[in-house]
Amino acid sequence: MGSSATSGPSSRFPSSVYAARLSRAAELARSAGLDALLITPGPDLQYLVGSRAQSFERLTCLVVPADGSTPAVVVPTLELAGLGESAIGELGLDVRDWVDGVDPYELVARGLSAPARSAVADAMPALHLVPVTARLGTMPVLATGVLRELRMVKDAAEIEALRRAGAAIDRVHARMGEFLQVGRTEAQVGAAVTEAIVAEGHTGAEFVIVGSGPHGADPHHEVSERVIGRGDVVVVDIGGPVEPGYNSDSTRTYVMGEPDPEIARQYAVLEEAQEQAVRAVRPGVSAESVDEAARSVLAAAGLGDAFVHRTGHGIGLSVHEEPYIVAGNGIELVEGMAFSVEPGIYFPGQWGARIEDIVVVTADGCEPMNTRPHGLTVLGG
C-alpha cells in the first residue's frame, strides 16, 4: 500500500459526524453548568470540526455555546484558507474572522453573558487564556472533563480508522526481518522502519523505538548508535497516524538468534500476562482491573517488580489519551473505548520485553486492532 493522501475527503470524516459531535459537546457542556466551550487548535479542535489548524500568536478559537445555538469560529483572516480542509464550511458555523488591530477576545465573548462560565481546551496557550479570562470575567475550567466522555468512546468511523491503522503497523512488523539485522545500529534500523511506516499507509512516523540488549530495559528508549549483536533481545515499539489522524501503536519483541532458556521462560510469562489482560477487557469492568489482570500474572511468577509502568493508555487522535489502564483508575469500560494493552518486563543493564496491542471494547469483550503473533520472534542471528 502506498503512502496515503494528506488532503481531500480522506483527511476528515463526513460533516454529519462533526455535527453530531458538536451537538453532543454542547449538551455535555450544558449538563456541566457551563455557558460555552472554547477550543483552540489541537486534538479537540480536530475532533469537533476536522480542523488541523495550528496555534499561533494570533487567536483561532471554536466557541461552542452550551445553549445549542450555532457555534462560532474566531480566526485571523490570513488563516481562513487553512480552514478549508475542515468541516466548518459545510457545518454552517459562524465564522468571525479578524485582522490585526481587532480584539479577537471580544469576538470570542460576543453573545456570552459576563461572567461567562466556560471551559477551555487543555492546549490553549497562556498567551490566549489570560485575555480570554479578562473578557469573560471569570477563570475558565478545563474542557477535558467534558470532552473526554466524547473522545474516550469511539464511533464506528473512528473504529474503522483504528482498524486501518492497526493493519498498517502490523504490515511493518511483518517486514521486521528486512530491517532488524545483526551488525546494524539501532538508528539504521529505525530509519528503515520509519520509511516502512509511511510506505505501509501512515502519513508519518509518530515514534520509533528500537531498544536492543540493555536498551530494551528502558521503556522510552528511542534509537542510538548501538550495534545490534547476536543474542540481543530487541524491543520494537512503533506507530503513527493514518487519515484522518488516528494512530497506531504496537510493540513486538525480537531476538537475534535462539534465546537464552531463562529469557524464553520469563518472556512466556509476559505473553501470558498480556493475554490475560486482553481477556479481562469487556464492558462493565474497571480500567484498573485490566491492569491487575496483567500484573497478577507477573507477580505470581516473581516478575512483579520488573513491570514498571501502567498496562495501557487510550488512543485516537492522540497517541496517549484517556482511558488509562492503571491501578487506581476505577472508570468503567464501555463499548467503543480504545486503548493499548502493553505489559512489559525490564531488567536494567540486561534486557527488556514488551507486548502491545490496541483493543476496542465490544459488546461482550474486545476486538484487537493488531493480529501479529505475540511470541518472542527469532530473527537471523
Rank of each mutant, 00 (worst) to 15 (best):
R21N: 02
R12E: 06
V210R: 04
R184W: 01
E271F: 02
M337R: 13
G380V: 10
P373T: 13
P41C: 09
L59E: 13
S4Y: 10
I197S: 04
N370A: 08
G166N: 04
G239L: 08
A217G: 06
S250M: 13
I228H: 07
T77V: 05
V334E: 15
V223A: 09
H220Y: 09
A268Q: 05
V99H: 04
V75E: 06
G257C: 11
V361D: 08
S23G: 10
P104Y: 01
N370W: 13
E160H: 11
L180T: 07
L317P: 09
I238F: 01
I325F: 06
V269W: 07
G352M: 01
G245E: 05
V210M: 05
A217D: 03
I169M: 09
V361M: 03
I228N: 05
I209E: 11
S10N: 06
A280W: 02
V234K: 03
E288C: 09
R163M: 03
R30F: 00
R279D: 07
T77I: 00
L298V: 10
G190Q: 12
V102Q: 15
P71S: 11
A36K: 14
A161N: 10
D291C: 07
E258T: 15
I39M: 05
A119M: 08
E106M: 12
G330T: 15
A306W: 01
G42D: 13
E27A: 09
G344C: 05
G380N: 12
G344V: 14
G380L: 08
V255C: 07
V49T: 10
G190N: 07
G380C: 02
E292M: 15
T371A: 15
A277T: 01
P283K: 11
V64E: 02
A114M: 03
G330R: 15
G240T: 09
S318A: 15
A66S: 15
M1Y: 12
G380S: 13
T194L: 05
A167W: 00
V242R: 05
G2F: 13
E225F: 00
I355W: 00
V285K: 09
G68F: 03
T133V: 11
F347S: 10
D103K: 12
N329T: 03
V73C: 14
P43K: 06
P71T: 11
E206K: 05
G316W: 06
G89T: 10
F339V: 11
R279I: 00
I315R: 02
S212Q: 11
